[in-house]
Design a protein around this nucleic acid. Sequence first.
DNA 1: AGGCGAATGTGATACTATAACAAAGGACCG
DNA 2: CGGTCCTTTGTTATAGTATCACATTCGCCT
Lengths: 174, 174
Amino acid sequence: MAPFAPTADPCPSCDAPDLAFAQHDHGRCQSDALSRAEGLVTARGLRLTPVRRRVLEILLESHRAMGAYDVLNRLVAEGFGNQPPVAYRALDFLEEQGLAHRIRRLNAFTACMHPGEAHAPAFLICHRCNAVAEAPASALRLALNAAADQVGFTVEGSNIEAVGQCAACRGQAA
Amino acid sequence: MAPFAPTADPCPSCDAPDLAFAQHDHGRCQSDALSRAEGLVTARGLRLTPVRRRVLEILLESHRAMGAYDVLNRLVAEGFGNQPPVAYRALDFLEEQGLAHRIRRLNAFTACMHPGEAHAPAFLICHRCNAVAEAPASALRLALNAAADQVGFTVEGSNIEAVGQCAACRGQAA
DNA sequence: AGGCGAATGTGATACTATAACAAAGGACCG
DNA sequence: CGGTCCTTTGTTATAGTATCACATTCGCCT
């Protein structure tokens, strides 16, 4: 996995990891992520082509995870190719570049909320509002690596996902 | 999620969490898990029917994860029903009863190596030998719950999976 | 024996993902 | 400018994973 060079831009999600679950200026959230993404991609000598950019925009519309076929339907409606590989390729690219994450529990994808920072977050998935937040996971990674070390296992990649209820939804339920 | 009543039997995997990656008396490993499973299921007033039992046995043959259709093929060969629901129902039952785990990263299932103990382990998946081990994850759970608590999120279920190389395979590679 | 709920068998279908190849677009170099 | 090469996209086809719905059977209880 290629390390991501840190950027100078502030990352709103870092100060508020619960952003996904709370009211916030989503327009800014969205455009921030998009401009950060463009910077990163070009800095790496790659291209944020129309399909790729559009897919990222679609994912950025909400803090939820979308299935590849949901994304594909959107693309079709906008005149892009209408076969699965079109969506999967863009999604795979975004994931490789750390601009999107795959949520295995949902067979779905979500935009990365702080691209450019080396991270492999834990995901918190609210099963009521379907929002997905990235929780800071450095302590988790340490614990995981420690557990793996104990048995001589070398971790190369991992996914940590939790389902439950966010604060807002729990409030409503009560 | 129903809590699992602890049993009096010793659990070899607890003393050796790296069992899956090491040489061991697999016959004992297997029969242990099976008898523990039977005890648990009947204690709960449920039935370990032929299909369910056979599926568990199949999963127990190795410390690897099997796809539902791999399991199904085995069942077909032994005269059970040959449609997906046959396998999925048994697998779902085993998972609900804590006798098997779903490895989301692999879209596959693996037998639980210490059924009866309340646990939601972290999985270590070796991409060379395909073995899957359950790592003790209490520290991990704590870290995950702490991270979730910080944003007011209540964790109801989670999956923690790591891919990498086990000690034996890393030795061979060198 | 009859009734009842759980479990299984079966056909059909939905959903997720990838392989393979053709065609188009861009960058580079002469 | 034209040619070459590599990347990206379009498209057909197919593989792999999972669930629905309904009929039937099984185990248990009375």
